[in-house]
Simulated scan of single mutants.
Amino acid sequence: MKEIIDIVAAYEIAVKEGKKTALATVVLVEGSAYRRAGARMLITEDGQLTGAISGGCLEGDALRKARMVIMQQEPLLVTYDTMDDDDAKLGVGLGCNGIIHILIEPVNDHKINPIILLKAAITARDNAVLVTLFSLEDRKAPQPGSCLYLTNDQILPNGLAILPYKNELLEDAKNALNSRRSVITAYQGYTAFVECIKPLISLVILGAGNDAIPLTRMAAILGWNITVVDGRPNYASVERFPSAKKLVIAKPEKVLESLEINEWTAFVLMTHNYNYEIAFMKDLLPVNPSYIGILGPRKKLERMLDELEENGAVITERNLETIHGPVGLDIGSETAEEIALSIIAEIKAVFTKRNGRSLKYKTTLIHSI
């Protein structure tokens, strides 16, 4: 999602400067590649690149082809076969061993274009599906490109109505939305990359001490929506937390009134104030957020849960699954920056349903599509 945000921002700058642009999207990968389907890059006519479709080995050639797309105003499907001797030089720097299909679309000033669909995905607070259609069988055939954006409450078609298989495609998009999984499907000589785009993680940090500063900085690099909460206005300030989207100065029982919480919201409690945190936890537990991280030793968490139960709080199995204390992955963290890294890594692993183990022990593909 961070890449999409950067691309949309770069596009808006290009529009203000009167520059023409094209959008390159990795739509299909066969074998191994540095980036998977869904990787994107915006190219301006003067050669500015935002985003990435590889580790740097394909961008130069893609730039040349994108300029042709901008000039002709027609989408183009480009294939790089890094298993072939002639194309191997493109991937040799990364050890790529796969076939990468990239669709390059001109971004014109039509009412709906690929960037409009990406902007809709940014503003959605729920899962969304973006369908990109292309032809592998006949590369001279029209390449429809980004033709549909779908959420539970919004549909943005982009040329979908003229497709003879529009009903099938729409049904497959709805299935992908429900299953929350991207898929590749085929229709009468065309292939569709039906991409499930997940919303940004919203990180709520309870505590505005110095150790919260590197946590907000790292979360900002990932593009997460950051809220910092504290009862002390001199701590929770814009000067100390410039990357926070929102600052909340409140007593613990008033904090939730200021927040919008969904399944993509993560909480990290690091106030170093036990009474503040236990008062907040009393209100937070019934909300059942997807992630609660608590800084400090395990005995602190055990004491907190015992006291909450003694005072009538109901702690469910779901609560125990989502509470992470001590917070973070075990990477040997000591400094505030290292602790922030371990927390960010654990939150990412939880939301992507991964175990946080080293990839060297993974026996299956890193990416499913």
Results as ranks from 00 to 15, higher is better:
Leu94Thr: 14
Asn262Arg: 08
Asp61Pro: 06
Asp138Ala: 09
Leu136Pro: 07
Ser182Ala: 09
Gly293Lys: 12
Asp86Val: 12
Ile343Cys: 04
Ala212Cys: 07
His110Arg: 15
Tyr11Ser: 07
Asp46Lys: 00
Gly51His: 00
Gly332Met: 01
Ser135His: 13
Glu17Ala: 04
Lys89Asp: 15
Ile261Lys: 04
Asn178Ala: 13
Ala176Val: 06
Asp81Phe: 10
Pro214Gly: 01
Asn273Ile: 02
Val27Ala: 00
Cys147His: 06
Ala244Ile: 06
Val131Gly: 15
Asp211Gly: 01
Arg64Ser: 15
Ile99Lys: 06
Ala349His: 06
Lys19Gly: 01
Leu365Trp: 08
Leu133Pro: 13
Ala266Met: 10
Lys20Ile: 02
Ala340Cys: 05
Pro214Val: 00
Val194Glu: 00
Ala124Gly: 12
Leu301Met: 15
Leu320Gln: 13
Gly231Ser: 10
Ile43Pro: 00
Glu45Asn: 09
Cys196Val: 14
Gly312Asp: 07
Ala22Arg: 02
Leu42Trp: 05
Ala121Asn: 08
Gly51Phe: 00
Ile343Glu: 03
Lys16Leu: 12
Leu329Tyr: 03
Glu12Arg: 14
Asn273Glu: 10
Leu341Asp: 05
Ala66Cys: 07
Leu130Ile: 15
Arg217His: 06
Val327Met: 01
Ala62Gln: 03
Ser243Val: 14
Met41Ser: 00
Thr82Glu: 11
Lys174Trp: 06
Thr227Asp: 03
Lys2Ile: 14
Asn210Leu: 12
Ser182Trp: 04
Met71Arg: 09
Gly56Gln: 05
